[in-house]
Write a protein that binds this DNA or RNA. Structure first.
Lengths: 201, 201, 201, 201
DNA sequence: TATGAATGAGCGTTCATTCAT
DNA sequence: TATGAATGAACGCTCATTCAT
């Protein structure tokens, strides 16, 4: 059968709608039962499509997860980027709060982000790896604009900043260190890492 | 009937023997097929005990994993502790090499360590959380004995040292950053974190 | 995509084939090792399907049992129904012999039938409850066609007939009453229950 | 070591105490979680003895069950026996109510009673088989004392009476017949079974 | 694209019962 | 008698992923 242009368009439209419906249902389900509780079964049921259709749209379940979480993280960074450049470390902590909150909302999410912080192959840098890259880049810019230690490159500083953020979250999931809050710990680390060393110490 | 000390011991002995046999078989199997390839079925077969016995000794498979990996990490630390105190960062990297190698030998192991680095409840601080604590403590001692930055506490330095080690491993599992080796990256981070800032920079 | 009738059928056909294969393998295994000896593992092995597939077709092992035993009982009733209406109690005993034999072939089967003779909820009246219903209905028809006591309804007679059959089987599984055979006992009960009382007694 | 008479007595006393404690704990647990929910583990925990001790006192778990349920049934019969001879079928139903209630309190109990209604060997007539025998004997006496059908022996009547009681309970556990209550059904059956047939019917 | 039955491979459970001490 | 670790043997489950249609 000849496939006319309009038919192709119609098909494409339906495809996009299916994909959108899957994503929307998934987002709703996450609100109810969290990321860890998300089941492909429930997503396809809610979207009214067959299981196979899900995998025609997303390579695997994690691909969907990456999209959902990546989007959440990205919008946090959008906010951070939209505001004024933070001029102090507490300021930076405050601006990055939405991002950090998203990352540590669930142990499952945190683990998944760590796992996807790199991609299996360079060609496949996914939404999460991308957002972590954006994080470093953003901090790097802030560092350049502020007065922080100058003995190492702003990029290295930014990488360490991210590393300490992750470390602080790790410790939060650990009962041993539950006494100190995430942001208190973060401040200690970031201070020690970013500021020029006081000569007297 | 009066239960004498020797009776109690006799019973406990059999229990300990069974447990030791399970652990020994598991260790052998790990040598062959790696941690990820370990099968409970094979462990009980090798130990000549029933499956129920396995679960009477270990809450679940992960509990065994924690013990095996924890022991391996612990013996790496024993080695590190037995030798002379490292006097430089490259030295420290070299002394910690067995520990780091153990941690990054398998993605599965690394993920499991991260997952168990904290426990759900204080009462359950397992062998892995414990070994990470020892790591920090050891580094802290080294820091005290050497000439590193003095503006922050040796404990804080040690925590950061561990954080950068983990971050460097994470990046190694990531194709994006495969160009730099783990220890090269580690040196950059540790230098920037531990050394006093050079005044000229 | 429009789902045509033939597509739906095609899918259903495969499902039915798998189900039929599972049932057929199970029936063969029962012939060899009895109902009690049936193993789910062997069924799926014989049918060449995965274990998950078994549980996609049958809620649990008992659900399969119900179907197998229900079918066997049903075919006994088919036989009974196909022949001429029994004109006496010994005749009735003889016609019901295959059904009774099936029911008491294994203690396991008898217990399972009793357990499933009622269902937890009306919606779940299974094959076994159903066959017991058919039994009563069949006997009721026979009673209507014969000359039995008329002071109570044929349906009530039929219910009692079934009750005495089950009671007689129960007693057969009991060493205390092993001296009397099942059918002898059954005759005594059924005579006393179904026949008009002799005036002289 | 010579075992004196007084020592033997002391030992025996302790043994009986252990047994009594096991029974008492079991009875308490049954009150809480029912017969089906009773676990040997919990019994020995409550009694403060080891698992093996349980099996030194009771052949198996069912032996304990038989004792517990048998005692309950026996005391119901004691009550029935203590009162005046019932003079009508409704009267009989009322007198037997405690016994029937005990028997149908749990599906598990009912099934167990059926299973133990006979014993595996004549030598081992257990408490439950015994109580069912008492039931028949008691009814037989009542039948002899009243005016019921005379065409069959009082013993046969009594056996049927018990059979119909069991059948009525069976039907109660069956959703199909939930509309009629146990005692209503019982009256219909017993009337039809025990009374002389009215000539006009 | 869409369908949905089938896959898969191992984990954890169950808990009455046994037996060496 | 008393102990309690060990047994046993199968069940049911999990649930993302595949593939023939």
């Amino acid at each position: 059968m000849v496939q006319t242009r309009s038919m192709a368009k119609a098909v494409q439209k339906r495809t996009l709608q299916t994909r959108a419906r899957l994503l929307s249902v998934a987002r709703d389900l996450v609100k109810t039962s969290g990321y860890e509780g998300l089941r492909v079964e429930e997503v396809v049921l809610g979207a009214g499509v067959a299981k196979g259709t899900f995998f025609a749209h997303f390579r695997d379940k994690d691909a969907l997860m990456e999209i959902l979480i990546g989007a959440e993280l990205d919008s946090s960074l959008d906010q951070a980027e939209a505001g004024p450049v933070p001029v102090s470390i507490p300021d930076m902590i405050s601006v990055m709060r939405p991002y950090h909150l998203c990352m540590k909302q669930e142990r499952y999410v945190f683990d998944l982000i760590l796992r996807y912080s790199g991609a299996a192959a360079i060609a496949e840098i996914g939404p999460i790896a991308n957002t972590l890259g954006r994080y470093v880049y953003l901090v790097e810019e802030w560092v350049k604009a502020g007065s922080y230690r100058t003995d190492i490159s702003p990029e290295l500083i930014a990488e360490g900043v991210q590393g300490f953020a992750i470390q602080s979250m790790s410790l939060q999931f650990c009962a041993l260190h539950a006494s100190t809050t995430f942001e208190d710990r973060l401040k200690v680390y970031w201070d020690a890492w970013m500021l020029p060393q006081s000569p007297s110490n």
